[in-house]
């Protein structure tokens, strides 16, 4: 791989993953959108502390799979269990589960009518019921962590894409989630801003956060992921350690896909 690629994190030390017991369990998930089968009986398990990367061509179902974890998409059939809670049971309060599962979107989706600080404190106050002072403290700590403490009173539109995405990560982290989901977090960013976002994600991985990441950032995958899943046509085609999947892909479709994105 081209080592001068600006999107590749400078970090070379590999992260040691201490894995705990299963925190996400997906059993035979099928998702149909009308005639289209987006996911075809996909099963996947994620351990506590794992950084799992999902790659695949567009329309392969990788985002849909990610969105099934926090029930942004409700599977047509199959069962999702998050932190021991079966999401398909009628009595389950989905909002309670979502408090523990942070999500970062391709297009940031910051709340444009609120300041950066309000973006990060709102859910803490109205969902976690924290006092506004406490929420503010958490927010300031997190904004420092993602490297933009000085933008607290700005509005999202006054920030660059990379800064907005870092605020979005801080907003999700403010809920102190057990799991973080990333849906193509760098694909809407200008190249020079990708690194600042990946660095934040790398830091999270180092701290032992359980992460599921849909992205094609190979550098990040090699540095931070302990497992890569390759999807095509709504199915998991191949799964393994990053070096294994990228350097010795077993399946023909994986080889074809990698040859296209690695040039």
């Amino acid at each position: 791989m081209d080592t001068t690629n600006p999107t590749e994190p400078v970090e070379t030390e590999t992260i040691v993953h201490t894995l705990g017991k299963t925190i996400i369990q997906m059993e035979a998930i099928t998702k149909r959108f009308g005639e289209l089968v987006a996911l075809d009986t996909v099963s996947l398990e994620v351990q506590r502390g794992e950084v799992l990367m999902i790659i695949g061509p567009s329309g392969s179902g990788k985002s849909t799979l990610l969105r099934c974890i926090n029930y942004m998409e409700v599977p047509t059939s199959g069962r999702v269990t998050v932190d021991g809670i079966d999401m398909s049971r009628r009595r389950v309060n989905i909002n309670k589960v979502r408090e523990e599962v942070g999500m970062v979107f391709q297009r940031f989706e910051l709340f444009p009518h609120l300041t950066v600080l309000e973006n990060v404190t709102l859910a803490q106050r109205i969902v976690r019921k924290r006092k506004s002072g406490d929420a503010g403290e958490v927010a300031h700590d997190l904004l420092r962590k993602v490297g933009i403490p000085e933008k607290a009173n700005n509005y999202p539109a006054q920030l660059s894409g990379g800064q907005q995405q870092r605020v979005a990560i801080a907003r999700a982290l403010a809920m102190q989630p057990k799991i973080m989901l990333f849906d193509e977090p760098t694909s809407a960013l200008d190249p020079e801003m990708i690194k600042e976002v990946l660095d934040v994600m790398l830091e999270l991985a180092r701290e032992g956060m359980t992460m599921v990441v849909v992205s094609h950032e190979m550098g990040f995958a090699r540095a931070a992921a302990n497992r890569v899943v390759f999807m095509d046509q709504g199915r998991i085609v191949e799964m393994g350690e990053p070096d294994q999947v990228f350097d010795q892909p077993q399946h023909e479709r994986t080889q074809l896909f990698l040859s296209k994105i690695l040039h």
Partner: peptide, 19 residues
């Protein structure tokens, strides 16, 4: 996406509308 971002933070439907 605004609705999804709010719901992903655990906000209820009513909270999402309101805030």
């Amino acid at each position: 996406g605004q609705n999804e971002a709010a719901r992903s933070l655990g906000m209820s439907h009513v909270q999402t509308m309101r805030y």
